[in-house]
């Protein structure tokens, strides 16, 4: 039991926060912000497996989020599918797509990979924008309500618990993965790619695997988002959204699962806190991005963890 506590300290703290937060929540708007923070966190936890652990950049992950969202919106309305079936189809489709594009592009390195992922994101977003007869184009479209085993999620409160639970599951799965032979292979190919290959790791295979897994995380969160938001519009899958996801991961802490959650929550809350000075929001966001990378390149959570460890040590 104590081993479990040790291993999952972060998970337990997160669970406690999720349980206690409603005490401070006063209205549906607050719930709405927290739900979006949680959905972003699921994407970023997955994305951080790719960027932080495996060291491969993606500037196109919003496209997978968006494809998941549109899959749910289109399949549950136009085709009348059950919400879980639509979500599963979205995840499977995104998984296949990610696999097909990952094999050729993950051979690329650094800026070339950034360019390729960015291009894929933009292509997908243009397609969804243009095929208006399917997607509603720039006006967007709505999904049917989300229901599981006959229970339909309507209230913000029920959504809060749903997303909170899903986030905990995402964090648990990711932590497990990192601390497994697969996770070691990912960290190894980040640390010294040639060294990893020579001791027997098929680095291409693992890069593709983690790209697909992180895309599926994004698709999952996108599906939930589609059911929760009034309308799904192409703005959720543009280049800027992709950048926001990366920023959340980097700000919270690369190669840190809890960092992903903290980064996603803070960066989702920030625009709401800054709402009164809306015009200055990009300036502040940009300054935070530059400042974080210059003054704490490891990100918030690892930097704080290191400070605490130093204090603990005699």
């Amino acid at each position: 039991m104590s081993a479990f506590l040790q291993r999952h300290r972060g998970l337990l703290i997160l669970a406690a926060c999720i349980v206690l937060l409603p005490l401070a929540v006063q209205n549906d708007y607050h719930y709405d912000v927290l739900i979006n923070a949680g959905l972003n966190a699921i994407v970023v936890v997955g994305l951080n497996l790719l960027i932080g652990y495996a060291g491969q950049i993606s500037l196109g992950h919003a496209a997978f989020f968006g494809l998941g969202a549109y899959a749910s919106a289109i399949l549950t309305t136009t085709y009348g599918w059950h919400s879980l079936a639509a979500m599963g189809a979205g995840m499977a489709g995104v998984g296949v797509l990610a696999y097909v594009v990952a094999r050729p592009i993950l051979r690329l390195k650094g800026h070339y990979l950034a360019m390729a992922t960015l291009g894929i994101g933009i292509i997908i977003s243009i397609v969804l924008n243009t095929e208006a007869h399917i997607t509603g184009g720039p006006d967007g479209m709505s999904a049917a309500p989300f229901s599981v085993f006959g229970y339909t999620f309507q209230s913000e409160k029920s959504w809060y618990w749903l997303v909170g639970g899903c986030l905990l599951a995402a964090v648990w799965l990711s932590s497990n993965l990192i601390d497994s032979p697969i996770g070691r292979a990912l960290r190894a190919l980040h640390g010294a790619e040639v060294g990893a290959r020579v001791v027997g790791i098929d680095t291409t295979h693992y890069k593709v695997l983690i790209f697909v897994i992180s895309a599926i995380f994004a698709s999952f969160a996108g599906s939930l988002f589609a059911h929760h938001t009034p309308t799904v519009t192409p703005s959720i899958l543009g280049f800027i959204k992709s950048v926001e996801f990366v920023v959340m991961a980097v700000f919270g802490g690369m190669a840190s699962v809890m960092g992903s959650v903290v980064g996603a929550v803070i960066m989702t809350l920030l625009p709401n806190l800054l709402a009164s000075i809306e015009d200055y929001e990009p300036i502040i966001l940009g300054a935070i991005m530059m400042g974080t990378m210059i003054f704490m390149p490891k990100g918030l959570v690892p930097t704080i963890a290191k400070m605490l460890r130093r204090k603990e040590a005699p």
């Binding site: 015009d279 929001e281 991005m289 390149p297």
Partner: peptide, 28 residues
């Protein structure tokens, strides 16, 4: 200059941050 030795991803974030920052200033 202050981030000269940062890795590729960090530098990408810095310059994207700079572009958002400058865009914000232009807008204001």
């Amino acid at each position: 200059q202050p981030a000269k030795d940062a890795d590729v991803v960090a530098l990408i974030i810095i310059t994207i941050g700079a572009s958002i920052f400058l865009r914000g200033i232009v807008q204001v």
